[in-house]
């Protein structure tokens, strides 16, 4: 009986995931290969459409930019947080967890107030006399990227604080006592040791931005359509479920490919691995 206890206890969760996640998602993907027009027809349509290629390319650009900016900001901030005294560290972690636990709608809405035509940034710029006409900042790639960076920096900071704190102090002391300057220690000891964490953070941010919906919808609108908003439009506005399923399949394949590839790379690059 004991042999099967582990299986018995994990069966309900396994069934939930199997029946309501794996099967429905597989069914969505399978239908794209079983259309009357031929097995790859929906994909030929997708990649044959200039508009859709633009959407895919824009989504990749936005996701890459968001990932790169979040990596730089997140890493530098996490470095300072991990070296801070206890009380300051607690405050900083609270400041990062608070936005993390606040919903995506609220956080995107905040940027809507800031970047709008009558928004805070425009009124501030107008009152200082830097500009004479309000700028159109909403519905631009910059607005989407800014709000996405805002969305993902807390995640990146918290991921990297954990990674940086796991680096033993002995290593840094050894580096310093052997004559390395702080910059050299940072570049040659801390950075290489943080690479696996940076990769994990980058994967989280990239896949998150690539499949985002609410933020690009609110700050990018129709003008900055991305994969997520296009998928929603195809499914719920034009009711072209084959097209929506095709976009879903492309999102799943790209997401899982990146996760598998990058976790493998991270494992290989981990200098602490035995």
């Amino acid at each position: 009986m004991k042999r099967f206890a582990g299986w018995t206890l994990s069966t309900p969760a396994t069934l939930l995931v199997l029946v309501f996640l794996i099967l429905p998602v597989l069914a969505t993907i399978v239908t794209t290969f079983a259309t009357t027009a031929g097995p790859f027809a929906p994909y030929l349509t997708f990649f044959g459409s200039g508009f859709r290629r633009t959407v895919l390319w824009r989504t990749i650009q936005i996701s890459l930019a968001t990932t790169a900016i979040s990596l730089v900001i997140g890493f530098l901030t996490a470095y300072v947080v991990s070296r801070s005294p206890g009380w300051l560290k607690s405050i900083l972690i609270v400041a990062a967890v608070f936005p993390l636990l606040t919903g995506v709608v609220v956080r995107s809405f905040a940027w809507l107030i800031i970047l709008g035509k009558n928004g805070i940034l425009n009124s501030a710029l107008l009152s200082t006399g830097l500009i004479s006409e309000p700028l159109s900042m909403l519905y631009t790639q910059g607005a989407v990227i800014t709000a996405m960076v805002y969305l993902f920096v807390p995640l990146m900071v918290l991921t990297l604080v954990g990674v940086l704190e796991a680096i033993p102090d002995d290593l840094l002391q050894a580096s310093a006592s052997l004559g390395a300057k702080p910059t050299a220690t940072f570049m040659q000891v801390i950075l290489p040791l943080a690479v696996p964490g940076l990769i994990v953070g980058a994967v989280l941010v990239f896949t998150g931005s690539f499949t985002a919906y609410a933020t690009p919808q609110l700050l990018g609108g129709e003008a900055q359509m991305v994969m997520g908003t296009l998928m929603y439009q195809q499914a719920m506005v034009t009711f072209d479920w084959v097209s929506a399923s095709t976009i879903a399949a492309i999102m799943v394949v790209i997401t899982i490919a990146i996760v598998l590839l990058m976790t493998r790379v991270a494992r290989r690059l981990n200098p602490m691995a035995v």
């Binding site: 969760a13 995931v17 429905p24 969505t28 919906y213 998928m231 799943v252």
Partner: peptide
């Protein structure tokens, strides 16, 4: 890995698949 699968599969895809196939 199975139990963290819902993190790997994009939420939009899960939502749409539940609508379409359930």
């Amino acid at each position: 890995t199975l139990f963290i699968l819902p993190v790997l599969v994009p939420e939009l895809v899960l939502g749409f698949s539940l609508l379409k196939n359930v």
